[in-house]
């Protein structure tokens, strides 16, 4: 069965699909599973993020105000950040979106917005933390399917970072288990982690903060996976991937210098120029 309308809509901008997946996950998490997320946090984070994006767009004199990216950032942030203070949620959202406009190198923002907000708040306040283990296996299963669906729908365009990160990280976990003589159930269990999936599909995947060339992105994913593994299994500190991403961010401009590629634009010409897609849009 063909659904040309849906398909073209999702292909034109993958962010619609991401928003759909993240918001259903959030609704499920708040109302069905007890994730420990308060709906008030979600409201504050989304509202603040949109406000800051609006102000930033005017400050940077962008042609228009596009709510898609700040929505994805705020949904990821809501899903990952736990706090009992609404002020912290608001500050986190401001840092996330503000960093996009303020910290830029070579025409790109350096840090992944949700990531820089999470790490800053975790370091700065006792009232912010990330609960990585709070997902039931049913939620993880459904979420994995939705994430894989995303890969299929977008034909893995720009998905090298996600796939490469998961492959490298899984290889390190299985390698560790083999070296320790642990049963396979252990690395399998370590991979079944909701926060890891959000990280791989919605954070490290952000085309705006990853290198421009495909080879560069794979190299970058390998660096992040290695740093994450070191943090989590050598220094025994939780939230390895999230900390690793911010530590590896300075490598992006460096990789871009040596491996040239094209800057990413969400509504890029190549996304719209394929024959099939063209037909579908019409």
């Amino acid at each position: 069965m063909r659904l040309p309308g849906t398909r073209s809509f999702l292909l034109r901008d993958p962010r619609y699909y991401q928003i759909a997946v993240l918001s259903s996950l959030l609704l499920f998490g708040v109302f069905v599973l007890d994730f420990g997320i308060h709906w008030q946090n979600a409201v504050v984070i989304v509202a603040t993020a949109l406000c800051v994006q609006y102000l930033g767009s005017r400050y940077a004199q962008l042609p228009g105000f596009n709510p898609l990216s700040p929505l994805i950032t705020s949904l990821s942030l809501t899903l990952l950040l736990r706090t009992d203070e609404l002020v912290i949620a608001a500050i986190a959202a401001s840092i996330a979106i503000g960093s996009k406009f303020l910290i830029r190198v070579g025409g790109k923002h350096v840090f992944n917005p949700a990531n820089v907000a999470l790490v800053t708040m975790m370091l700065a306040s006792d009232h912010a933390w990330v609960s990585s283990g709070q997902w039931g296996s049913a939620a993880i299963g459904a979420f994995t399917l939705a994430c894989l669906g995303f890969l299929v729908l977008t034909r893995a365009r720009r998905a090298e970072t996600t796939v490469a990160f998961l492959v490298f990280f899984a290889a390190l976990l299985f390698g560790r288990a083999a070296w320790l003589g642990d049963p396979l159930a252990i690395p399998m269990h370590q991979l079944q982690n909701g926060a890891l999936l959000i990280f791989a599909f919605f954070m490290i995947s952000d085309p705006k903060t990853t290198p421009d060339s495909p080879r560069g992105r794979i190299l970058y994913a390998a660096i992040v996976a290695a740093v994450a593994f070191t943090i989590q299994f050598i220094y025994y500190t939780p939230n390895g991937p999230i900390l690793a991403l911010i530590m590896s961010a300075p490598f992006v401009p460096l990789i871009d210098r040596f491996m040239r590629g094209r800057h990413y634009h969400w509504l890029s010409r190549d996304a719209l120029s394929g024959k099939q897609i063209k037909g579908a849009i019409r």
Binding site: S125, A128, S131, P183
Partner: peptide, 14 residues
């Protein structure tokens, strides 16, 4: 429970 229990301290004082 194939793996050892790993903990973290949160800021939650509720």
């Amino acid at each position: 429970f194939p793996e050892d229990l790993m903990f973290q301290e949160t800021g939650d004082r509720q």
